[in-house]
Amino acid sequence: MLGALAALNGLLAVIVGAFGAHAMTDAQAKAWVATGALYGLGHAAAALTVMARAPTAAWAMSAGAIVFSGTLYLMALGLPRWLGAVTPIGGVLMIAGWALLIWHFLRA
């Protein structure tokens, strides 16, 4: 399940990122998509890399990327901007994933 979630982050980053680059004209929407794709793809790769050794960190990274990138994608597609209040929750989860990874390596 964790691998599938991380791979979903990568898939969405590529699909939505390409859509934003080629089909969107609104500058703010393009920026949201670009940011979401950058963080989504980066955290997908990180989670897939560490999921066997540090699954808790990978879960936090994956969940965080879904929330962070997902809310940016949804706002770019025209959903309400109040979703921007949810975006930082994803950021905190991604940060927690990196902190958990540091903890994992310090304990090893």
Rank of each mutant, 00 (worst) to 15 (best):
H43C: 13
I66D: 02
W82F: 12
A27S: 08
M75N: 10
I66W: 10
A44W: 00
A63Y: 13
A108Q: 08
N9P: 01
M51P: 01
G20A: 10
A23T: 01
A45N: 07
G36V: 05
L72Y: 01
W59M: 05
G20V: 06
T87P: 15
H22I: 04
I89K: 15
L101T: 01
M94F: 15
F19W: 15
A31W: 13
L72H: 02
G70M: 04
L101D: 03
A47E: 02
I15C: 06
T25Q: 11
V16Q: 12
L100S: 06
F19E: 05
L8A: 13
F68P: 02
R107A: 08
L74S: 12
F105A: 15
W82M: 08
I95T: 06
A46W: 02
H43I: 09
V67R: 04
M24A: 08
A76D: 00
V86I: 04
A47F: 14
S62D: 07
A60V: 02
L38G: 09
H104D: 04
L74A: 14
L5A: 13
V92K: 11
A47K: 08
L79V: 06
I89Y: 14
A21K: 15
T71N: 05
A18M: 04
G90W: 07
A60Q: 08
M1H: 08
L5D: 06
A7T: 01
I95V: 11
G36Y: 04
Y39D: 05
L74T: 03
A21S: 15
G3T: 07
H22A: 12
